[in-house]
Amino acid sequence: MRFSRNATGTLFVGGALSFTLAALAYPSMLGLNTVSSDTSRVIANTQWGPLTEGDRDFVVKVRAAGLWEYPVGLLGEKKGQSQAVITASQHLVDGHSALDTTDRKVAQMLNITIPNLPSPQQQGFVNTLTADTGKQFDTDFANILRITHGSIFNTVAKIRSTTQNTLVRALADQANDTVLDHITVMEKTGLVDFGTVLFQETTPPKLPAVDLTPPPPVAGQPEVVLTPPPNATSTPVNIDGLTGASSGTGTGTGTGAGTGTGTGTGTGTNTGAGTQTTAVNVTPGATPTAG
């Protein structure tokens, strides 16, 4: 595994690539900036419960994580030197495609703008693994992804235990299962340096916000979709069933159409964004291009 130190002696993984996802801020989303450290500040009251700074930030983080881990999974399926690394790569593709489907649905319903590209730091991870060859790829793959998943694991738990928003809670449930699965398969590679992983998780260097922040999507740009593998075993959360959006209240078929229309208009402000969704091919180590 490659290490380097900067002038202050801070240890970096894979050529000055460290992970501080917990510090990620996403300014200008919804026209607001993240204020101080008060993640509990309510920024919107929705029919599914209050939405806080922390809730919104979490939805963006989940999206950004998938935008780099999914391509890395595709990369690992091709470049992995061991079956354990190939299996872990398959878990990344499978898990993040399902998690991203849930995340995009939740973001749409809560009117949260989500990125189409990962942060510069996350893209740096992709670049490092794209350049790696042979055994070095397997080692960097297992350690970088174990560090990143370990770092976000506590964030998922905090959101799950504190959010009052039903949609965010459901997303956190799925994220918890996905992240734990990915931590486990990385450890099963036998390549994780736990001493280094613990250091990186507990002593993250402070990087400029620009390195940690995914760029806002370009207006009119198709939304990137992480396509599930043909043999997918992970499934998105049934958000419509969770919220009763299908209007199946059992009040009688005679009023079903009427109540269905009423519900539709209630969420209609979000369907416009949904119509912009276009499948985009995501290739390892490259900027996503429309398919």
Rank of each mutant, 00 (worst) to 15 (best):
A44N: 07
A44I: 07
N45S: 08
N45M: 13
G49E: 06
G49L: 04
P50N: 01
T52K: 08
T52Y: 05
G54Y: 06
G54E: 11
G54H: 10
D55A: 05
F58N: 11
V62Y: 02
V62Q: 08
R63F: 03
G66P: 03
G66R: 00
G66F: 00
L67V: 05
L67Y: 04
W68H: 09
P71N: 01
P71T: 03
V72C: 03
V72L: 04
G73Q: 04
L74D: 00
G76H: 02
G76R: 03
E77A: 08
E77I: 14
E77N: 12
K78S: 12
S82V: 11
S82G: 12
A84R: 15
V85E: 08
I86V: 14
T87W: 08
H91T: 15
L92R: 06
S97N: 02
S97G: 02
A98G: 07
T102C: 04
T102Y: 01
T102K: 07
D103F: 00
D103L: 01
D103R: 08
K105N: 12
K105L: 13
K105T: 13
A107V: 10
M109Y: 12
N111Y: 11
N111K: 12
I112R: 02
T113R: 13
I114M: 02
P115K: 05
N116L: 07
L117F: 09
L117T: 15
P118K: 08
Q121Y: 14
